[in-house]
Structures are given as structure tokens and as C-alpha cells.
């Protein structure tokens, strides 16, 4: 087990290097001159532009720029963004907000998705099942920014149940509306995954055996059906945590959440390579760790799986 985890952590290193190189080169290849863009439509005088290029190492060849970035990285210095702030500081202030938002979305989608999916699976073909089949179809079909704007206007502006934006006031309450929107699409997937596997497992041999042994329906469903149905759902949720953090760009924009998505958006707009790469790399690492946790969870859910 320990060896398995160590090996997986070691695998992070090549992924990390590959991801940074790839992202760095993509930002480098973007058309347009980031320094001229600092001056808006008027541009920046050539002498000033040269000075700034030298300051941000933009006058050096691509590979030198990248190696300088890596060098800084290994001395725990992510560099300075175009706005003059330390990139590590930007990440440190934005990351907890996004993490809180993603975890809230994950909890919402898991609790609701598994709950609704279980009932729908147990009463396959019923009215409840049909209703939520339509709801999930709708949620999947409508783009997330439409859901975002509609919820913001309805619950934020018209009804006033939640503040329409988050801004400086980051709390459980203010993040609730964006978390619901962020988790809505995944809720639909979790619900349908749960429903299908529950319905399938209900007819499995071991369920019949358990029922034949005289176990209560409650115990059969909660211990045998649900636990076995969780394997695909857990896989999905693990992947989803990464997607939620990265995909928060849209939701964070709509609800003005000062999180990693906003920081990333700002950095991409400014073609601020060190900032983009650092932020995305953090996201990649979160994604990899979440996947590792999912793999370890398999062993808990399915005793047949053993890691060595």
C-alpha cells in the first residue's frame, strides 16, 4: 500500500514537468504582444516596452524563459505577475476560496445526486424517476452560464434570498448560490449514474441472496446495493473535483467570486505566462491527488481490489 502511494506520487513529477512545459509553450504561442497590450489601444513607447520585456524575461528565447521559470520554481519563487504581485500570493489568496466553493459543490451534488438517484433507482419507471429524468436532462442540456444568470437574477435580484455576487464577503452563505450552480450539472450525472447502477444491482445475485437470508430491505439497500453502486459514482466524483476547480472560471465570473478561476482568467487575458502556468499547475496537482484518493477508495468499497 505505502509502496503503491509512493509510486503514484513519483508519477506526479513527469506529469508536472510535461504540464508546465506544455502550458508555457501554449501561452507563448498566443498571438499578440502582451507588453503592447499593457498600453491598451495606444500601445507602449518602444523604449519602455523593451525595458518591460527585459524585466519579465520576454526578450529571451522560449526555452530560456521556461528554464528560468523552472529555476525559480525549485527555489520556491513563482515569480511576479504583470500586476506586480507575487504569483504565490495570488494563488494563496484565491485558492482557498475556490477550494471551499468546489467542496461545497461536491457535497451538494453528492448528497442530492446519490439521494435522488437511489430513490429513482429503487422506483424505476415511477413518477419520481420520470420527473428527475427530465430535470437531469434539462440541467445537462442548458449551458452552465445560462443556469448561472437565471439563478442569479431569480434568487439574487428578484427574491433576494442570496446575495447576487460574492466579492470581498466570502462565506458559506454567499458561496451557496454559486456552489449550487457549479454543482448542478454534475448533480445530474451523479443522479443518473446512481440510478442506473442501483437499478442494475437490485437484480444481482448477491442482492437476492441477501434478501433470501432474511435481511431487512433497509439493510439490503444501504449495505449491499448502495455500497456496490458507489464505485462508478466515486470515480466520477474524483475526476469531477478537478473539473469543478478548473471549471469554476465561468461560475466565478458570473458571481464575482475572487477565486482561482478569476485569477486564471485575468492572467490569460494579460498573457501572463508565469501566472497562467503556476495556476494551472496547481490545478493539475489537485486533479492528480484527487485521482489518487479515488483509487485508494476503491479498495475500501470493493474488497476484491488490493494494492501492493
Amino acid at each position: 500500500m505505502a509502496w503503491y502511494v509512493a509510486r503514484r506520487v513519483m508519477q506526479l513529477i513527469p506529469v508536472f514537468l510535461g504540464a508546465t512545459l506544455l502550458i508555457y509553450s501554449l501561452v507563448f504561442l498566443l498571438p499578440g504582444d502582451p507588453i503592447q497590450a499593457l498600453g491598451g489601444e495606444r500601445g507602449v513607447p518602444p523604449a519602455v516596452a523593451d525595458q518591460l520585456r527585459a524585466q519579465y524575461n520576454l526578450d529571451k528565447p522560449f526555452i530560456v524563459q521556461y528554464l528560468l521559470y523552472l529555476q525559480g520554481l525549485f527555489s520556491f519563487d513563482l515569480g511576479v505577475s504583470f500586476s506586480g504581485r507575487e504569483i504565490s500570493e495570488i494563488i494563496a489568496s484565491a485558492f482557498p476560496t475556490t477550494f471551499q466553493l468546489a467542496i461545497m459543490a461536491l457535497v451538494i451534488e453528492t448528497v442530492l445526486g446519490v439521494g435522488v438517484g437511489l430513490i429513482a433507482g429503487l422506483r424505476k419507471g415511477g413518477i419520481f424517476d420520470a420527473t428527475f429524468l427530465i430535470v437531469s436532462l434539462l440541467v445537462i442540456a442548458v449551458p452552465i452560464f445560462v443556469i448561472g444568470f437565471v439563478f442569479q437574477f431569480l434568487f439574487g435580484v428578484q427574491l433576494g434570498w442570496f446575495p447576487p455576487t460574492v466579492g470581498s464577503d466570502v462565506s458559506f452563505y454567499t458561496l451557496m448560490l454559486p456552489a449550487i450552480v457549479l454543482g448542478s450539472v454534475s448533480f445530474a450525472y451523479v443522479m443518473r449514474l446512481t440510478r442506473t447502477t442501483v437499478a442494475e444491482n437490485l437484480g444481482a445475485d448477491y442482492v437476492r441472496t441477501a434478501t433470501a437470508k432474511g435481511l431487512s430491505r433497509r439493510r439490503v439497500v444501504s449495505v449491499h446495493v448502495l455500497r456496490n453502486s458507489m464505485i462508478p459514482v466515486v470515480t466520477f466524483l474524483g475526476v469531477d473535483l478537478g473539473a469543478l476547480m478548473g471549471g469554476a472560471v465561468v461560475t466565478e465570473g458570473i458571481f464575482n467570486v475572487p477565486g482561482i478561476g478569476n485569477a486564471l482568467y485575468t492572467a490569460i487575458k494579460a498573457q501572463d505566462s508565469p501566472a497562467v502556468v503556476s495556476i494551472v499547475t496547481v490545478l493539475v496537482i489537485v486533479f492528480l491527488i484527487a485521482n489518487l484518493l479515488v483509487d485508494l477508495l476503491y479498495a475500501v468499497l470493493d474488497p476484491r481490489i488490493r494494492y501492493a
Binding site: G160, P164, T165, I254
Partner: peptide
Amino acid sequence: VKFYQTQEAAYNDLLAGQ
């Protein structure tokens, strides 16, 4: 001065009295 990423968000805040 509240910082907004989009004008839509600021406009909704104005309508909501924020």
C-alpha cells in the same frame, strides 16, 4: 470600491441593492 470581473455582476448587485 468593489471589484467586479464582469459588468453584468455589478449591474445585478445594483438592482439587488448591494
